[in-house]
Design a protein around this nucleic acid. Structure first.
Length: 411
DNA sequence: TGAAATGTTGGGGCG
DNA sequence: ACGCCCCAACATTTC
């Protein structure tokens, strides 16, 4: 039986991983590989915070594989060439992976699949990142949804897809492991150590994701509906980076948090973001609605926003939380984005680009949806007259000033 | 997942 | 007991 390559991408986990489960099912040796190819990501190669996370997450995945008698191969792109070379080095009969939905990734993966099949190699992709594939959810007219609530209802009417079989304690290994680059050879970690605040907050990898989920369900899920809006509390799950890198699957999260409808709703917002990105692949660049085109570039203003010098205490606290931890509470993200677009007159893409570089959970689908929602140019967006008042928002959602105090120290 | 203005309701104080 | 007023709490409307 020939070996099977499992091409890891944004599914850096050994539990509920359909591609890995299918590879094990085939019976031969399993060869896990990660290919670093940022030049294939179109306009959105991973930003600095994402690379920091990726480095740690790959290390965690590699350690998990070693514990099971396996090994993570690291290679660099071009992906098609790297896979072809690995196939010839290992005599692999199949390459399996879990799907991605970003336009550049879809185009690249389609070519890779065709190339492999032309070489006589079995190539199959699986759903490892979403509850429902974007092309399987549609409205009465058979069209993609553009409004959240009907999408949510359609999702709630469907059966939860089953989980994949978890990886066993021992993975079948090939007789010889092909060469691998060292992880630090990818230079994902910053040369200057700006990530000390990140390390205090985050534990990238499958174990960190499971721990975060367990704590959320035990401590916060019951009060999620109200506490999720309080940035001074730990009222949200903080699973976004773990979900982005696939260290945990939405199916696992859904099952653990099934008692909290308001939280499930947020999980479906993530599904909706992928639904929109898949069906409207131009939307990260060209929104569905033309609103908010009257902005002018202003590097000084933009710099003030990025460096936490807007003068709005809640926004500046948020920008400092982002800078220090690679994450910002969602309530504060909405206010910070609203201020950039509606108070400062800057373009949403400029804010989105900063978030892309600084967020550990930077995700093209979610980032695009969030910014277009605030700017009012997306599929399901706030009307132009909906403007957040940063002072009022602080009074409402941080009444004791806990959040402002926590992120008061200047950068 | 807006804010502010305007409208409605009901409890309680008071003469 | 009753009517009147005030006001908070909530609901509705408007941008």
């Amino acid at each position: 039986m020939g070996a099977t390559l499992v091409w890891f991408r944004q599914d850096l986990r050994l539990t509920d991983n359909p591609a890995l489960a299918a590879a094990l099912e085939r019976g031969g040796p399993v060869i896990p590989v990660y290919i670093w190819a940022p030049e294939e990501e179109g306009d959105w190669p991973p930003g600095a915070a994402s690379k920091w996370w990726l480095s740690r997450s790959l290390a965690a995945l590699a350690a998990g594989l070693e514990k099971r008698g396996s090994h993570l191969l690291i290679r660099t792109g071009p992906t098609a060439e790297a896979l072809a070379r690995l196939v010839s080095e290992t005599g692999a009969a199949a390459v399996l992976w879990n799907r991605r939905y970003e336009p550049a990734a879809v185009a690249r993966d389609t070519r890779v699949k065709a190339d492999l099949r032309a070489q006589g190699v079995a190539a199959e992709s699986f759903n490892g990142s979403l509850l429902f594939e974007p092309w399987t959810v549609s409205n009465q007219a058979g069209k993609p949804f553009r409004i959240f609530t009907p999408f949510w209802k359609a999702c709630m009417n469907r059966a939860l897809p089953p989980l994949a079989k978890d990886a066993p304690q021992h993975l079948p290994a090939p007789e010889h492991w092909p060469a691998s680059l060292p992880l630090d050879g990818l230079r994902l970690e910053p040369a200057i150590d700006w990530a000390s605040g990140f390390r205090e907050v985050w534990q990238p990898g499958e174990a960190g994701a499971a721990d975060r989920l367990e704590r959320f369900v035990a401590e916060a899920a019951a009060h999620y509906e109200t506490d999720r809006n309080r940035p001074g509390l730990t009222g949200t799950s903080r699973l976004s980076p773990h979900l982005h890198f696939g260290e945990i699957s939405p199916g696992q999260v859904w099952r653990a948090a099934a008692g909290s409808q308001p939280f499930l709703r947020q999980l479906v917002w993530r599904e909706f973001a992928y639904h929109l990105l898949f069906h409207f692949p131009e939307s990260p660049r060209t929104p569905l609605r033309p609103e908010h085109e009257g902005w002018k570039p202003d590097p000084e203003k933009l710099r003030a926003w990025t460096r936490a010098r807007t003068g709005y205490p809640l926004v500046d606290a948020g920008m400092r939380e982002l800078w220090r931890t690679g994450w910002m509470h969602n309530r504060v993200r909405m206010v910070a984005a609203s201020v950039l677009v509606k108070n400062m007159g800057l373009g949403w893409r400029e804010g989105a680009a900063w978030f892309w570089d600084t967020l550990v959970d930077a995700d093209l689908a979610n980032n695009t949806l969030g910014w277009q929602w605030v700017a009012g140019c997306g599929a399901d967006a706030v009307p132009y007259f909906r403007v957040f008042n940063p002072t009022l928002q602080a009074a409402k959602f941080d009444p004791n000033g806990d959040y402002l105090r926590r992120w008061a120290a200047p950068l």
